[in-house]
Computed example of a mutant assay.
Amino acid sequence: MQRRKSIKNMALLAGGLVALPHWAKAWSLESLPPMALPPLPMLEGNTLALIIEAIIPESETKGAKSLGVPAFINTMLADCYEKKVVDNVEKSLARVEGIAQAKFQQGFAALPLAQKQALLLELEKGEDKDLKDFYSLIKNLTIQGYTTSEYVQTTFLKYEMVPGHYYGCVPVKS
């Protein structure tokens, strides 16, 4: 065994343990880099929120829009998907606006919920691969964001953070 190398490693370890508390207190939320802006411009982001609202609308329970699913999808697009996919989402959101103008002579935002849902159903069953991919992605992310929200997990799925509670003092029959 090399005694000098061992002593050096122990000294480095001791120095690291002394410096660790200072390092752990040195960062804060303000010192972290700012989060990137959402990948979608405001108009497209609004259209995205309306599409999400049409997929899971408000009823006696909260809808996807009120649970923050648009922010979830923006974060997922920014952090988890390639630029090609995000570009397709942007183009498809603009095309949805164009389809609504052509078919109903008004923007997607002005349409009643039934017409929005009918337009989205046409996208899902249509022949255009880019629009089908776009709608499939948005629908899947909406369902994922909605079902993993705290509201749905605790209200409907009875999610327990630590399942299998341990009851320590239980009388035992002899």
Rank of each mutant, 00 (worst) to 15 (best):
E124D: 12
G107E: 03
P34E: 08
N74E: 15
L50Q: 06
N140F: 11
D130H: 10
E122H: 07
K83S: 10
L12G: 13
V86N: 04
A54K: 04
G126A: 11
A71F: 05
M10T: 06
L111P: 01
L40F: 04
W27H: 08
M76K: 07
K25N: 14
N88I: 12
G15D: 11
Q115F: 08
A102E: 13
L119N: 13
A102W: 01
D128F: 00
L48V: 02
A24V: 14
A26H: 01
E58W: 03
T47E: 01
Q105H: 04
N46S: 05
A64M: 02
S136P: 10
D79W: 07
K8P: 00
D87G: 09
G126N: 13
D133W: 05
M42T: 04
E90D: 07
L123A: 11
G45I: 00
K132Y: 10
I73P: 07
P33D: 00
N140A: 15
A49E: 09
K62A: 10
P41S: 07
A49Q: 00
L137W: 11
K91T: 11
S136R: 15
P33F: 05
M35E: 15
S6W: 12
F134C: 03
T61H: 00
A102H: 11
G63K: 02
R95H: 10
K65M: 03
L77A: 03
A109I: 08
F108G: 04
P41F: 08
L50R: 01
G68L: 00
P33M: 05
N140W: 13
E53N: 02
L119P: 11
L32W: 15
Q105D: 09
K8S: 14
N140C: 08
M35V: 14
M10Q: 15
F134L: 02
P34Y: 02
G45S: 12
G63S: 01
K129I: 10
K116L: 03
I73T: 03
A109T: 04
L77F: 03
W27C: 04
V89N: 02
E124I: 06
F134R: 05
K83H: 08
S66W: 03
I99C: 10
P39L: 07
C80Q: 13
P33R: 08
L67V: 04
A114R: 06
N9L: 15
K129Q: 12
L29D: 11
T47F: 01
K103Q: 10
Q115P: 01
L121C: 07
L17Q: 08
Q105P: 00
G16P: 01
K91A: 05
G98C: 11
